[in-house]
């Protein structure tokens, strides 16, 4: 198990393996999203209170979940990179940030579009989850700005890694802010002690979309990490060999 792990952490090996993984992740993710979105938009019954407006959750919830999952990925990868000094791990952290920022933006945008007819306002400051999601976006911006400001890759890796870990403190605050402050936002719907408060024909497409978005995130992450690895290793022999053989 550990030898496999060590092998994966070597850039040339990762580059070979990931080439085969990207289409699997990407295509299966897109297919699942297509099924989930079709069922979410056309098959699931309208909500008895919100009508058809609730259907935006099929984009909103997976995006919001991935905005946090991407941050966790980033912080975890940065932590592994800092502790065991694995360069590939830093490349994963660096690649996860822009994708996570996009999902955060998507979650905010869909939340605002939903909020206009439902709450009667584009933006509600009293809602802690909305505010924390915005702070999440700022955290991503800070992380990316710090990376951009340091020209030495190794130093940028380590410095931004520390920032990612410090920022990870914000994740539990986001999650529990729902309970901390009085809130307009819906309470937890899926993960509740007495089971999901949602009929299965609404829930199944949502779960499919969450899985599909996650797979798509994996594919995008792998593509970005592959580019990052080539950038970091462009002076190494194996990259030169790849170029000479015309495989790059």
């Amino acid at each position: 198990m550990w030898t496999w792990f060590h092998k994966l952490a070597s850039p040339p090996h990762f580059f070979r393996i990931s080439e085969k993984m990207v289409p699997w992740f990407g295509i299966s993710g897109l297919l699942i999203i297509a099924w989930g979105t079709w069922h979410g938009l056309f098959v699931a019954p309208p909500d008895y209170q919100q009508g058809d407006a609730f259907r935006i959750i099929y984009v909103h919830v997976p995006s919001a979940y991935l905005s946090m999952a991407a941050y966790m990925t980033m912080a975890l990868a940065a932590g592994i990179g800092l502790i065991w000094r694995i360069k590939l791990s830093h490349a994963v952290a660096a690649a996860a940030a822009p994708i996570g920022a996009w999902f955060t933006f998507l979650a905010l945008a869909t939340g605002m579009i939903w909020g206009r007819p439902m709450w009667g306002t584009w933006w509600e400051w009293g809602d802690p989850r909305l505010t924390s999601e915005l702070l999440m976006l700022f955290l991503y911006f800070g992380y990316m700005a710090l990376r951009a400001a340091i020209s030495d890759v190794k130093k940028a890796d380590n410095a931004s890694g520390v920032l990612a870990l410090v920022g990870a403190v914000n994740i539990p605050i986001i999650h529990y802010s729902v309970e901390w402050w009085s809130s307009l936002h819906q309470g937890a719907t899926i993960l509740r002690e007495d089971g999901p408060a949602m009929p299965p024909e609404m829930l199944t497409p949502l779960l499919f979309n969450i899985a599909g978005f996650t797979l798509l995130f994996g594919a995008l992450l792998l593509i970005r990490v592959r580019t990052g690895v080539i950038y970091r290793e462009h002076r190494k022999m194996w990259v030169k060999n790849l170029i000479q053989r015309g495989e790059l």
Binding site: L135, F138, L139, L146, I150, L163
Partner: peptide, 19 residues
Amino acid sequence: LTIGAHRAGSLLSLLILPL
């Protein structure tokens, strides 16, 4: 974290304000 970085002043606000 911003020691020796370019435009450390504005960068610092960007890092610290959300936290």
